[in-house]
Design a protein around this nucleic acid. Structure first.
Length: 582
RNA sequence: CGGAGCGUAGCUCAGCCUGGCUAGAGCGCCAGCUUUGGGAGCUGGAUGUCGCAGGUUCAAAUCCUGUCGCUCCGACCA
């Protein structure tokens, strides 16, 4: 490819709209342009890298035995009604109407479509296992698109769906995808690692997200240094708080004491009260499908809403409003508690969910359900009627792993993939049943597996760049080699050598671009570094006088080679570089 | 949807608080000359409904109201 014959609109300065470095570089290197929030045009170089990632994904899915299909992005509503997601996923659904005013959906994901296909086409146990995948544009009405391709309204996803006849077989399918994902991200030059993920209200036990560590990531991951434990913070557990919960009874019964104006954990732990946060019981009121529940946590702990969703069996809940709280508890937030003797008649029957870190807690302080008062000498087993003991807290750095007692760290990360064992949720609702050997009919066991292809592209940039620009891994670079003639005058010795090398490399199958622009060397160097081609070959009069050209790997040191050896040297370099991503 | 910020040239921004000449700079773009190993120099040139709509005023980029868009923080997710 010739630079002058493609379209690479680089920018000197980062556009104001881009906050994070990968987003800035996507724009500055001329890979994408924004149409409007969450919608991007892929320009030639961005598209080339995107296609390379897609191809890696395709090869590894094929290797794992998955079968490529292509499903419609436009979908009828009835299958979504059947699965129930017309309602539960309504927030992310883009709906369109045809001229007869019939409603259609732009697919945010394809469980319904693939399950309908399997329901109508596959009926015998002999036809399993099957795993279908596609690489396709998805549409989601994101609450807040952001960071360029990281969270877009329209994005390219690889989605795969496995169908099996038993749990054991489904686990094998799951493992194959898990292994394929590990290979895919490695081949993309990404350091991605799997973590246990929340399965949400769907339940089930098997779910992993593939995470790329990045300060700008939207997720938090809890892990040990050795990797012996790794989980999304929504799911993460530990052996409990570093400072144990007091368990010594300090009084015969709860004792109220005045705390005028004290409505925070901090205030109660300061002068003149000096009640350490871990000796307090925090009471929260939530409204679950219009019914109140009380949630108890240690004062120094935060509620993990994902865990609460699992505990409640629904994700339809919200914090109660101050008015609702006052109406129920007779006190305002900051003075709440669940001690039996302080609960109003109305509150007495409200379910109490307590975090397990509060087990056997004694000598605790909590709100008295009376503004300006707290209670001390609270013994939770004696004084509070706990209906449900559950793990509800957010794990903190420094606590130790349940697997091997190693200290836990917390990292931010980008989720690039998610593998999920679905069970029979969709197969039951959409009638994907098969006939087993005995003649009985049973629903298929499903799994679903997603990779955010466009997000992966940006994650590569986020993880691999320096002050000058992108540092593409060879495997996903838009071009492997950039030839930079320092004088682009047609027929000049420099250009003759550059053109010759260009033709030789292209003829040997190297993805090469020649910067044939009539620009000064500095401009070309800056642009090549910004775009991040893995190898740059400088052809200039100085070195040409010695019959040499320069090889400059984007991430390595400059060297010189004889003109006649240049092509071989470049080939050798590419070969050794390519081996790093296998 | 709640909170915060920003909309002035293709890009980055100044001007706005305290209204007043022809709306500016750098980069980019066009022409010419010079230059040619890390975003060159000089000269000349083109480019703006100051996001949009109302209002206040003798006068609005500037003040007020509304509206649209973009960005960031939270809930959602590949």
């Amino acid at each position: 490819m010739r630079w002058t014959q493609t379209f690479i609109p680089t920018l000197k300065e980062p556009p104001a709209e881009a906050e994070i470095v990968s987003h800035q570089l996507l724009l500055r290197a001329g890979l994408v342009r924004k149409l409007t929030s969450g919608l991007y045009t892929f320009l030639p170089l961005g598209l080339r890298s995107l296609r390379k990632i897609e191809q890696i994904v395709r090869e590894e899915m094929d290797r794992a035995g998955a079968i490529e299909v292509l499903m419609p992005a436009l979908q009828p509503t009835d299958i979504w009604q059947q699965s129930g997601r017309y309602v539960t996923a309504r927030e992310v659904l883009y709906k369109v109407h045809d001229r007869a005013d019939k409603e259609w959906l732009l697919g945010p994901t394809h469980e319904e479509v693939i399950t309908a296909l399997v329901a109508s086409e596959i009926s015998s146990y002999r036809q399993f296992p099957k795993n279908f995948y596609q690489i396709q544009t998805k549409f989601r009405d994101e609450i807040r698109p952001r960071f360029g391709l990281m969270r877009a309204r329209e994005f390219i996803m690889k989605d795969a769906y496995s169908f099996d006849t038993s749990d054991e077989a489904a686990e094998i399918s799951y493992k194959k995808m898990y292994d394929a994902y590990t290979r895919i991200f490695r081949r993309c030059g990404l350091h991605a690692f799997p973590v246990e993920a929340d399965t949400g209200v769907i339940g089930g036990t098997l779910s992993h997200e593939f995470m790329v560590p990045a300060e700008t990531g939207e997720n938090e991951v809890v892990c040990t240094a050795s990797g012996s434990y790794a989980a999304n913070i929504e799911k993460a557990i530990s052996r409990g708080p570093i400072v144990p919960t007091p368990a010594k009874d300090t009084g015969p019964e709860p004792e109220p004491f005045p705390t005028p104006g004290v409505v925070t954990i901090d205030a109660l732990s300061s002068q003149p009260y000096n009640v350490p946060a871990h000796c307090q019981i925090k009471a929260l009121v939530y409204v679950v499908e219009s019914n109140p529940v009380i949630v108890l946590l240690r004062g120094d702990d935060q509620l993990n809403e994902a865990k609460l969703a699992v505990a409640l069996g629904t994700n339809v809940f919200r914090p109660a409003t101050p008015d609702e709280i006052h109406d129920l508890m007779g006190a305002r937030p900051g003075s709440l508690g669940a001690v039996k003797s302080t609960l109003s008649t109305k509150a007495a029957n409200v379910p109490v969910h307590a975090d397990i870190a509060l087990r056997n807690a004694a000598g605790m302080t909590t709100g008295a359900n009376r503004d300006g008062y707290h209670l001390r000498h609270v013994n939770i087993e004696r004084d509070i009627h706990v209906h449900h003991w559950q793990d509800l807290r957010v794990v903190k750095a420094g606590e130790v792993s349940v697997t091997d007692g190693q200290p836990l760290e917390i990292w931010r990360a980008i989720e690039v993939g998610h593998v999920f064992k679905l069970g029979t949720k969709y197969s039951e609702k959409l009638g994907a049943v098969f006939i087993e050997e005995s003649g009985a009919r049973r629903p298929c066991i499903m799994g679903c597996y997603g990779i955010g292809v466009t997000r992966t592209l940006q994650a590569v940039i986020e993880q691999s760049h320096d002050k000058d620009g992108i540092i593409w891994p060879l495997s996903v670079a838009p071009f492997e080699v950039c030839i930079t003639p320092l004088n682009a005058t047609q027929g000049s010795p420099t250009m003759v050598v550059a053109e010759s090398l260009y033709r030789t490399l292209a003829g040997r199958g190297v993805e090469v671009i020649i910067d044939d622009r009539d620009e000064r060397p500095g401009v070309k160097f800056k642009d090549a570094d910004l775009v991040g081609f893995p190898m740059r070959v400088n052809v200039g009069e100085k070195s040409l006088a010695r019959d040499e050209v320069e090889l400059k790997p984007r991430a390595g040191k400059l060297s010189t080679v004889k003109v006649v050896d240049a092509a071989d040297q470049v080939m050798a370099w590419i070969q050794s570089e390519a081996n790093k991503y296998l």
